[in-house]
Design a protein around this nucleic acid. Sequence first.
DNA 1: CGTCTTTGACCTGCGC
DNA 2: GCGCAGGTCAAAGACG
Length: 445
Amino acid sequence: MRLLHSGDQDGRIREVDFFSESMRRSEMDKPDRPTARPDSGFGIGLRLLTTSSSVAEEESNDEKLIASRRELNRLNDENEKLRRLLDQLTRNYGALKAQLMLAMQQQQQQQEQKDERSLTPQQFMDPGLAGALDSEEPSQSSDDGGAEDPTNVTTTNIANKSPQPKSAPDAADQAPSNAPCRKVRVSVRARSDAPMISDGCQWRKYGQKMAKGNPCPRAYYRCTMAIGCPVRKQVQRCADDRTILVTTYEGNHNHPLPPAATSMANTTTAAATMLLSGSSTSTSTSTIGKETLIGSGFYPYAASTMATLSASAPFPTITLDLTHSPNTAPLHRLPPPSIPFPLPMHGGVLPQLLGQPVYTPHHQKQLFSQQRPPASVMETVTAAITSDPNFTAALAAAISSIMGGPANNNSSNNNRDSSHSGSPAMPPAAASPKLPQSCTTFSIN
DNA sequence: CGTCTTTGACCTGCGC
DNA sequence: GCGCAGGTCAAAGACG
């Protein structure tokens, strides 16, 4: 590397500071190019053939070329560093995710144990109604010795919050009006062009029917994240508005859910709990405000959601209407809002992410090939980010500015990356303000 | 070749 | 009892 500056007879290692802000400025701004030393052999040879000005020019070009090469090498090194850093982050993320799941399971287990000691009607769905949610799996009681592990039950499994799942007859006594109801359904209405919303679980389609009064077929899906999981869902487009996708969930997962799916599970659980615990509307419908939803643990969907209870036959159903999200402005150029269910984030962010694409099962397979549930947090955010043209443009500007591409300030183009050494001379690069600008649109609070 | 989707047949509950 | 509608099953085909 020092051969590039063979003319430095004074022994100063100029190349070390070559890319620094001050050095570059001092060299670039001086028209007489003092770094092109006349006593260097290279300079002398050229001076025999050319004028002093052309020699300086050629030396300048040569130095630029050398500088560009060194810059490229350094960028490659930095790129490699960043890649390693990303790998490290990915590993850390995976480890944290595993720890989070473990902690959630332990917390739930503790909660179940606590609940067993202090069972109150308000804290629990009454067992019968809980059994309604779990009606698909009568053998799921803890004493059947089956594959069911009560400690692995996820938050959707309202029934398992009950310590006595077999006390359904008592519950029937408590709620005689709901005695015929053996199932509770949570229906979600959302606008989506995709055939199915991504909720963090893996589903297998097992049937399709033409429902009466709706020209759109109704698809039946079964959860395939665990063998024997009783959870099913129906997906059907609204007859009035084909852009609205109505997804109806039924049953409880008998397996741990990844964090990507627990958000939806919490939501459906809260909805079902609210429906069952406060369903004084046995045959009519009622609308619930967002305050009620938030208070019931209906985050984050409550922020822009109205829920409708419908306890009419055959099953009591609570419908979460996400089609009236008022806050999709930040991603105004994105497709119509769909549901980012896997995002366990706070309410204020949800509407900003409503524009992310919804993945079909095939897309899920392609995007999440590591036996992971579709659209985990990172992936969902990534999808949202990559679908944002603003972010794409900002990213392109940042890359082009770093690589010395077209930018507003040419004098600082090559200095953008000086921050890697912790230099305080962080230039007011155009990319730096742009990236956070877009990123804040997707920030997870 | 394994997995998933499709689709017609079958089952079940309910109203008449 | 019959018909209808909703829900499920399972064989066949598609897909990667």
